[in-house]
Design a protein around this nucleic acid. Structure first.
Length: 293
DNA sequence: CCGCGGGCCTGAGAGC
DNA sequence: TGCTCTCAGGCCCGCG
């Protein structure tokens, strides 16, 4: 589910509840999410203060005073809510507005701020892992990640270099977290539409034979920047699971130009085409064949 | 090494 | 109403 804008929205929502606060009590209500929890998962969290909450690609990273980092991934259906703790945090009581949500509340952090931070994930493709900060660069989950799409290193020349030897489609290349880290199916479709580039185009056509960027690469980087920035401003896209940490909906789904719009008219002025859908690498691609070349 | 397809899970929605 | 089938925002793994 969550791509970079949704994860960034969650990060900003969790920050006031977690940053500068101590984890008074932590609960893992089952033995695993996507992977089993580490044996010492709870022990390495309780008593620690969260000194900072960051994001890398689609990972949330909480820095702890112990020198550990808590790595969190939302998978397809993971979400966080912040609830107000009722009474003593060590009692593990908090007000929960909708009881049906509770079935998949798998992890709870009771914070000294008075907040209960609850991780819910029906499909359990999400996971949490604690890593020593000085071992971060060796962490397999993070090792192959490409640049942040909103960071300084990501530009037309860099994207062209990453793509010029690729033997695959532009769509698949942008979904490859080694090329650029944080895009997913929605924002790849939307960025390609905004750049007027076909998802079927070969990734290598972003570069000349000498791996110099073409105009396509420049337009695509601009489109990625603008679609991500707009989506973050809108609180992400709420299709089914994604919510702000206070339970509100994101609203970028109302700005989709192609994603989930199969059969509907293309929104490019004067195009008159129809949004089409087909499957690429096992995922749905939405696009307008008339204005994406 | 690279690219692709399968699999991991649950739930929503369509069609019968 | 209820069953079956398809599909879903991600990513690891094994295969060729």
């Amino acid at each position: 589910m969550p791509e970079l804008p949704e994860v960034e929205t969650v990060r900003r929502g969790l920050q006031p509840a977690m940053e500068g606060s101590r984890i008074v009590k932590a609960e893992a209500r089952r033995k695993d999410l996507r992977f089993p929890f580490q044996k010492d998962f709870i022990a390495r969290l309780e008593g620690q203060t969260v000194t900072g909450l960051g994001r890398r690609a689609k990972y949330l990273m909480a820095d702890l005073t112990s020198g550990d980092v808590l790595l969190m991934h939302l998978g397809m259906s993971g979400s966080f809510r912040v609830h107000k703790e009722e009474g003593d945090a060590t009692q593990g009581q908090f007000h929960h507005p909708r009881s049906e949500d509770r079935a998949h509340d798998h992890v709870v952090f009771h914070m000294s701020s008075g907040a209960a931070v609850v991780f819910n994930d029906p499909r359990r493709f999400g996971y949490m892992k604690i890593i020593a900060r000085n071992a971060l660069e060796d962490e397999p989950l993070l090792k192959g990640l490409g640049p942040e799409p909103l960071g300084n290193e990501f530009d037309a020349a860099m994207l062209a270099r990453a793509c010029h030897n690729k033997k695959t489609s532009l769509k698949a290349a942008l979904l490859d977290q080694r090329v650029v880290a944080g895009l997913g199916n929605i924002y790849v479709c939307e960025a390609l539409f905004r750049a007027h580039l076909s998802p079927r185009r070969l990734a290598a056509t972003l570069a000349t034979g000498k791996a110099e960027p073409t105009n396509h690469s420049t337009h695509l980087v601009d489109a990625i920047h603008s679609v991500l920035n707009q989506a973050i401003k809108a609180g992400g896209s709420s299709i089914s699971d994604h919510r702000l940490t206070n339970g509100d909906l994101g609203y970028f789904q109302h700005s989709f130009q192609v994603y989930d719009r199969e059969g509907e008219p293309c929104r490019t002025r004067g195009c008159g085409g129809t949004v089409k859908r087909f499957t690429q690498n096992g995922r749905s691609t939405f696009w307008c064949p008339k204005c994406q070349k």
